[in-house]
Amino acid sequence: MATPKFQVGDKVRIKDRTTLFHTRTQKYIRKRVGTVVEHRPEWVIPEDEAWDRMETGRKEPFYVIRFKQTDLWPDYTGFAQDTLESEASESWLESVKG
């Protein structure tokens, strides 16, 4: 098991990588900054699982990332404290200083 690179409380940005085939990292969270709130176990990443590479696929730690809705949607109509959580594998995340 790889040691997770990010800790609970870390601020992370979701990368906007090219995805030719399957991914589970939704467009609406890409380039957005959120906070790691939980770790999830290591698992074959969806980009490989989609090809049924359960044995040979790349494994990565997964994270739950919490976003402020106002950071996701500039025209968000709810309240400032509203949030959204999504999960992503480690290679989709980059650290944000501060």
Binding site: Q26, R40, R66, G78, Q81, E85, E87, A88
Partner: peptide
Amino acid sequence: PSDIEVRVHDSNQKS
């Protein structure tokens, strides 16, 4: 109410 945090969970992975 406006003082409650609405927290949406997108089940986009294994959970």
